[in-house]
Design a protein around this nucleic acid. Structure first.
Length: 231
DNA sequence: CCAGACGTTGTT
DNA sequence: GTCTGG
DNA sequence: CCAGACGTTGTT
DNA sequence: GTCTGG
């Protein structure tokens, strides 16, 4: 009873800071093949200081006004449509946009009783940025819990074979605008969050080992035979 | 005014 | 915090 | 998203 | 069936 983009990967970590214009290299980022909600992810923000930085945030938004993080239903996705009107997202959309680095994501197809996972990624294997929003919750002891959501949009022709939503992948030339401080016009937001071109992506069946959030490793993105399609 | 929600997708 | 429903 | 739990008090 | 944890 949760969302669409529910698992993703960061497989290419060499050159990641350079790819996103982050100057600080102190954060050691390990490849991840099965990032699930509730886990920490290095996302990219641009504070007022102007320099892009990595900040570790937990996937699943806890709004700043929540009284108790465990009492609030954490959203892991936010629909692009009507984003500006949702109480949880209205504020972050104006002031707290982030880039979520990713190489690909998983979608599941029900085949009878079992869910069969597919991996969707760029044909050229370059890193993408999902459009994200974040918020900061102040803990009773004065610390900060930083959390984020991945925005979803209509699927392109490729992803629509698997699902009726897909993550909003920013075109590389739009990443700068998404990280710019302050509100963006509604029309700009709509344009930036439009479905990513299908011809740049590829999808294939992977092992059901990825179903278990505890699974890790490069085996998870290995292509396996798709039993639902002819050979 | 106060109380209560504040979210998404998929499946039926 | 802010909006909606009662 | 999927997997796994789904319960309590008192005693060690 | 439905919620929580990863």
């Amino acid at each position: 009873m949760i969302p669409v983009c529910g698992r993703f990967t960061i497989t290419v970590t060499i050159g990641l800071p350079e790819r996103f214009g982050v100057k600080t290299r102190e954060v050691q980022i390990e490849p991840r093949y099965n990032i699930a909600p509730s886990q920490p992810v290095p996302v990219i923000i641009r504070p007022e200081s102007g320099e892009r930085i990595f900040v570790e945030m937990v996937w699943g938004l806890v709004p700043h006004w929540a009284k108790d993080p465990s009492a609030v239903r954490r959203s892991i996705n936010a629909r692009a449509e009507g984003l500006g009107e949702r109480p949880s997202f209205r504020d972050p959309l104006q002031r707290s946009r982030c880039l979520v680095p990713a190489n690909g994501f998983y979608e599941w197809k029900k085949a009878g009783k079992v869910s069969e996972p597919y991996y969707i990624h760029r044909k050229d294997d370059r890193l993408c940025a999902f459009a994200g929003l974040y918020d900061t919750w102040k803990t009773p002891d004065g610390n900060r819990l930083r959390t984020f959501v991945i925005i979803t949009t209509e699927p392109n022709r490729l992803v629509s074979c698997y699902h009726d939503r897909m993550p909003a992948i920013l075109r590389e030339e739009d990443e700068k605008l998404w990280l710019s401080p302050g509100p963006l016009p509604d029309s700009t937001v709509r344009e930036l969050l439009a479905p990513y071109p299908a011809e740049l992506l590829e999808a294939y069946r992977v092992s059901r080992r990825v179903n278990d959030p505890a699974s890790e490793g490069e085996d998870l993105i290995r292509r396996v035979q798709d039993s639902t399609l002819p050979v």
